[in-house]
Structures are given as structure tokens and as C-alpha cells.
Amino acid sequence: MIELIVYGIVLGSIIALGAIGLTMVYRIVGFANFAHGEFMTGGAYVALFVVTILLPWIGFPDSRFVPLSFGWRMVIAFPIAMAVVAILAIALDKILYKKLRAKKSGPVILAMASLGASFIIRMTILIIWGSDYIFYRPGLMRPALDLPLSVKIRPDQIFIFCAAIFLVILLHLFLKRTKMGKAMRATADNTDLALVTGIDTERIIAWTWAIGGGLAAAGGVLYGIDVQLHPGMGWNFLIPIFAATILGSIGNIYGALIGGFVIGIAQQVSTAFLAPTYKLAVAFMIMILILLIRPQGIFGKE
């Protein structure tokens, strides 16, 4: 059971990376982004491209940080994946959502457009890579470490947790210390006043997409390192990240972080009683439960 909780924390840190971006987009751009899961998938596959095609092609040597399953190639691929998805997210905003905002389309229309975008991204990945399950480094034995309390954990999983926490701390410092970060919080607080204050809200929106997309991409790469890559992986994360977002109150970054861990732990612990394929349904049931008991989430007012 303790082992499942530990696995849940690892899964939760990946969910949290998705949920934090989702909750920021939800609050600042103002709609439910159904393409957020595909940002995760996109990040995972961009890293795959860099690790298995781009870097070998330019002759970058393969290496591995034993006992981790990856090496310098992944270290380079990771930020590239985040940057590419960040740019993709901004580009989607410019060619799609911005046009709809200009037409005064409601949030539901924007959400629908994001659903369309999610299929477009997923189909593009399917066209390029097909529907197979892929590993970053196939055929590798990945032994687990024995920790106290009979917890077995792979070194990769410890790395995943640390990487996620590192990114969250970076985000925290960005929001608390930098001018742009404070302006983002201000816009999330009160968009009209931000506009009055002279903050160019379109620029804030672009930053929001970049951060949301980048964090989601990081989550996708980490999931790829932990398990494997599949074009449907992001779609399967969609319900858990929405559940985490709602649990932690929409717009609340720290709520999304905690929500991510709660959902991740609940999903992993449920495998003690249910078939693992029901993980998604577990996240869904928790979400329904919150909607019934406390729809504003744990950190919401009223």
C-alpha cells in the first residue's frame, strides 16, 4: 500500500504538471482547454524525435546516467520539447483562439475549438509515428531500488518527482519575483483591471500558453520516461488533469499541484482493488464527487 502511494506521488507529479497549466489557461484565457492532454503527448513525441532522430543524426553521442534510463540526449531534448510545445500553444492561440476571441465567441465555442485542436494534434502524431507503443530507449532492463517499508522504486521515478517539483518551484519564483509573473497573477485576479493598468493582456495570454504548454510537455516527457509513449496518452490524462484542476479550485496553481497528487495517489491506490484500466474512471468518480460536495474545489471561496 505504501508502495502504491509512492507510485501515486510519481504519477501525481505528472498530473500536476498538466493540471497547473490547465488551471492557468482556464483562469487567464478563460476556457476549458481540451487540447491540454495533447500538449503532453506532443511534448513526449518532440522529445522522441530529438532523442532518436535529431541528435543521432548530428552525431551527438549516446550516453546514460546509470542508474537512470536516459542520458545527455534526453537532457537536451527535455527543454526543446517544452519550448516547441510552448510555441505550438502560442501559435494555436494566434491562428485559432485569438480569432474566436475577436469574434466575441463564448468560452464554450473556444472549448469546442480546443477539442478540435486536440484531435488535430493527435492525428498529426498518428500520421507521423503511427499508433504503436514506443520507448525512449527500448530493450533496457530497468531494475528497481529497494527502499525501506518494502517499497520498490525505479531511479527514474525519483527523478520524475524531483524534476516536477523543480519546475513547480521555478514557476513559483517566476510568479512571485518577476514583473511578468506578477502581471500574470494580476491578470488572473482581474482581467479588466489589468487592462486598465496598462498590462497588455494579449501578451499575458501568450505567456500563459507558453507556460501551460511547456509544463504539459514536461509532464508528457516524464510519463514517457516512466512508462512509454502512445498517441492516446495525453487523452487519457485529460480527465485526471481536469479532476485535479477542479479539486484544487479552478485558477489556483497550488490547488492544481495538490489536486494532481491526490488524483495520482487515488488512481494508483485503486489498483489494489480494481483493474488498472479503471484508473481513468477513478479520477472521474473523484471529480463527480467534488462537483456534488464542493464544486468550487478545496481552495475555492463560498
Binding site: 506578477k182 494580476a186 482581474n190 483591471l193 486598465v196
Partner: peptide, 21 residues
């Protein structure tokens, strides 16, 4: 503006900094 004229979750100092954005 008449109403909603501060950023409630920002500190006073941060509100003023936003004024100088």
C-alpha cells in the same frame, strides 16, 4: 475604476508595482 479596482490576491506593494507595469 469605481469597483474591483485592486488585485485582491496581490500584496499592496505588488499592486503598486503593477501600476508601473
Amino acid at each position: 475604476p469605481q469597483v474591483n479596482n485592486v488585485f485582491p490576491s496581490l500584496t499592496i506593494q505588488e499592486n503598486l508595482e503593477m501600476g508601473a507595469f
